[in-house]
Amino acid sequence: MEKPSWTPIVLSGAVPREATDLLAILVMGIVAVEASLAALSPTLFGSRLWLSLLVAPPTCALASVSTTTRRTREELALFAYGGSGWQILLRYFIRGAIIALVAFSPVILQEFLTTTSILNLVAAVIVLLLTGGSFYSLPSLRRIRSSSFVENYKS
């Protein structure tokens, strides 16, 4: 007698292979490496702001690509309302920069209170805003430039 099996469903999708899976692995990997390095040598990695910044790009990219369907609808609507590509990109760039700034605010505050070089801190914050904004808006740029984007207007 033929017996149904549940294993193909599990095994065919158990291995992480999507872009979002890889981004999640990257984020957790960076955090894990940072924690290990700090434990190994607290003095060398005492100022952890720069190392922490490595987490911003993949996290912002992950936030952006994990809502692709909804985001595409937003972009289609904004174009239909008369918006331009750069306005849409700016919208997401600012959103990404805010996300990064809010998330890193405890580290920035700590650095502000303890740092001896304010310039170093300002540079780190600028890098943070640029990477957060860029990596949040890049998936949109890729989408709206693709030839298949306008196909979404058709049913």
Binding site: E74, F79, G83, N152, K154
Partner: peptide
């Protein structure tokens, strides 16, 4: 030219086959 540039020449409104309202 882009849609935006065309709108600058003629005030244009478009209604597409698929609804496009912003969900949020």
């Amino acid at each position: 030219e882009s849609f935006v540039k065309r709108c600058a020449l003629i005030k244009t409104a478009a209604v597409f086959q698929r609804p496009t309202a912003l969900p949020q």
